[in-house]
């Protein structure tokens, strides 16, 4: 278990770079995808109001269409988008929990029994580390 950390801290800088790129790229793509959907809605509505006023002012249940959208329907849309984002984001995270796999190294390292050195721990306080339990299993 200690091995995992020791070995991580001995990774070269370019490994950090590769790893952070792998981790960030998919998350960034997901965030941007959701943000674009959302921006199209928020920034598109004023354009509809300006250039398609008949559509915007169509009566719907006593509301105008634009009022119903902005004052009521808009909020559930944000819920759906955020629920989608969280689901996808969790899936992405569960795909990259093991950095060795991401770097193309074997998941089970043979060093698991050799090193007991914890002086190079990345965390200042191992007891505070929420992930230490997971590493026990590793």
């Amino acid at each position: 278990m200690r091995t995992t950390r020791t070995e991580f801290s001995t990774l070269a800088s370019q490994d950090h770079e590769r790893l952070s790129q792998i981790v960030m790229r998919k998350q960034a793509a997901l965030s941007l995808r959701v943000a674009v959907v959302f921006l199209v809605i928020v920034l598109g509505l004023p354009l509809v109001n300006a250039y398609l006023p008949e559509l915007a002012n169509t009566p719907v249940f006593g509301f105008t269409a634009s009022w119903l959208f902005l004052g009521v329907v808009f909020f559930p849309i944000t819920w759906v988008l955020s629920a989608y984002f969280i689901k996808q984001s969790d899936r992405l995270e569960s795909e990259c929990t093991d950095w060795r796999v991401l770097l193309g190294k074997p998941a089970e390292t043979q060093t698991a029994f050799t090193a007991n050195d914890s002086t190079n721990d990345l965390t200042n306080d191992p007891l505070n580390d929420p992930t230490s339990k997971d590493k026990e299993i590793l």
Binding site: T4, R5, F8, L19, S20, V23, M24, Q27, E93, S94, C96, T97, D98, W99, L122, T123, N124, D125, N128, D129, P130, T131, D134, K135
Partner: peptide, 11 residues
């Protein structure tokens, strides 16, 4: 950005 399980985050 790394998930907590990867073990690189710290307080």
């Amino acid at each position: 950005h790394a998930p907590e399980e990867m073990g690189v985050s710290q307080d």
